[in-house]
Design a protein around this nucleic acid. Structure first.
Lengths: 339, 339
DNA sequence: GTGAAAGCGCTAACAC
DNA sequence: GTGTTAGCGCTTTCAC
């Protein structure tokens, strides 16, 4: 026997296809009693809707927009490239991307305000933390646009979901690794951030310091450098610090600008500090292979995109969302398990 | 404009829908010239076939069988459970599972021989290495059944693909972690295997020793224990070894029976050895949380199942397979990035 | 060799 | 409130 269809349900319930359809899609214009009869028939048959057929008939187009920071951030450029490459892969979905200056909440708020709700069903945005951004998101929601945050969250806003890693946990993971790597050597640990104004960086630092203070308390955690995800600034600041501080045993780079870290390490001493950074890119991969970096904490951009898309689709449909299916894992790469 | 359909192609090529369909599905009964005209029309329109619609019309059923080792191996039981839970999720696909005694190649070969090719379109099997198993796989292939190996490979057989991690790399990853964790302490490193007769265990040990010898050559690697994935045997063997060898600084458990490792560690000294094990289960997770284990190397069973299913589906269709989409990553978990 | 027509399971007008 | 009907893009008989 093959799976029951709405025809079977209609026959058992003694109604027409349209009525079954109305019940299925929770549309009005069905008497309570009829609704109950149909529901019971579904129950009895173990009816499961065929989504492919539904979409085929519906020929609906979801119009989604990704809002990402511009600039030389390899991770973000990778995200953008993957969105472009996969745009065709989603049936019934038209995806576009727009970029805004990084670490600039006014620019982001402006970009969000200029979205036309009539042309857009859902938005995925890499958030910067500010009242203006919050307000812009709320305005979108009020006009029926579905909103999820991507990579960096904005918890107290009206965004409906966050797609990205738990950044406190990511920071803790980095500390667990770096603390273990540095066991036996005691000294200073450097953290290199992009900006404490973006939530993901602040959270990573929090988690990192929690674990380091608690479990590896013989190490000294230096105040974080702020490199604004710019490799030149990072390289300069870090080189200067390393020259000035001979006892550095570990480095945690929790933002972008990772190439700057590799450059500052190039002229390192024989017993170089252990290094943990974020995001697997062509450069961090290379640094892992040549031994400059010890570990890379990563989030899978392809998965983030596909989760964001399917989350937005079900939010637009008003459907239920499975938090487990929306989880993004904190991945750990060493030289030996590189994909 | 919406995507072109076979109607458009038919119109442009000046043929009927059926002819377009014949060309699309590479069926015979079309003149070369007609075929070319259709192909050109597709080219010109940028036609892309709608797979959902095709499957809807075709109403095909793929009948797939998973062959797994029986016994108390948590990872395998997890796989089996997930297959059951997700069996409904695949449209047009009927999935069943059969189990055979572990580490028993005759039993496995027998189970494979008893598969009815008329009732089965594809098989995913956790392989044991033996000539009989190879022969059974070849017989299945000869009768038109698609075959992939799962978790443990059988490279020189006629299986069409392997779904699982690169186990040499997994062993290398374990060594990279354990070597770094033990830095500063020099002593013996223990490896605990299930059986060297299954390929995945042998490969993990190979990779592990490669890296340890090369990069952490001050550590002494002891000959591996063989615990047959049985927690009692593992616990006994390991406890005995630890009592006898006071300088153990690291333990790598590369098979199942991981609960036995945790039990042997329970009465450990204050400066306990660092421990790296395979497969995230309820027990290894607990051991990670309470500090008994330092890291877990994992492969995602849910992903393995879905990759195996889609791989088998495209093999049955004779379609192309994307090796990147079939990759299974080597995941690393610490206490802090547990899902 | 090629085409016409009837579905696959579901939706969306429009009738009643 | 409920039913009828004509599709969505593709496959599959069965004629010609």
């Amino acid at each position: 026997m093959s799976r029951p269809t709405i025809h079977d349900v209609a026959r058992i319930a003694g109604v027409s296809l349209s009525t079954v359809d109305r019940v299925l899609n929770d549309r009005e214009g069905v008497r309570r009693a009829t609704r109950a009869r149909v529901a019971e028939a579904m129950q009895q048959l173990g009816y499961e809707r065929n989504i492919a057929a539904a979409n085929l008939a519906r020929r609906r187009q979801y119009r989604l927009l990704f809002v990402l920071p511009a600039g030389g951030n390899s991770f973000m450029r990778g995200l953008e490239r993957e969105i472009g490459a996969r745009a065709e892969a989603w049936e019934f979905t038209a995806i576009s991307v727009t970029t805004v200056p990084p670490f600039d909440d006014a620019a982001l708020a402006g970009a969000l305000q200029s979205i036309d709700p009539a042309q857009t069903d859902g938005v995925a945005v890499v958030a910067t933390d500010s009242a203006a951004v919050r307000a812009a998101l709320a305005a979108l929601r009020d006009r029926g646009v579905a909103v999820v945050t991507l990579v960096s969250d904005l918890p107290s806003s009206r965004r409906q979901h966050f797609v990205g890693i738990d950044n406190v946990q990511a920071g803790r993971t980095a500390a667990s690794l770096l603390g273990r790597f540095c066991r036996g050597r005691t000294g200073s640990i450097v953290t290199v951030a992009g900006s404490m104004l973006v939530r993901d960086h602040a959270e990573r630092r929090l988690g990192f310091e929690q674990v380091l203070r608690q479990e590896f308390s013989d190490q000294r955690v230096l105040p974080p450098l702020e490199g604004f995800d710019d490799q030149d600034i990072v390289a300069a600041q870090l080189a200067e610090l390393l020259a000035r501080t001979p006892d550095v045993v570990g480095i945690y780079s929790l933002g972008a600008g990772t190439r700057g870290v590799a450059r500052a390490m190039a002229q390192a001493r024989p017993d170089a500090p252990s290094v943990v950074v974020h995001e697997l890119t062509a450069h961090s991969r290379q640094a892992l292979l040549d031994g400059t970096f010890d570990a890379v904490i990563h989030q899978d951009p392809v998965r983030e995109i596909s989760v964001a898309v399917s989350l937005l689709q079900s939010l637009i449909e008003g459907g239920a969302i499975d938090p487990e299916a929306a989880r993004i894992g904190i991945e750990v790469y060493l030289r030996d398990n590189l994909p």
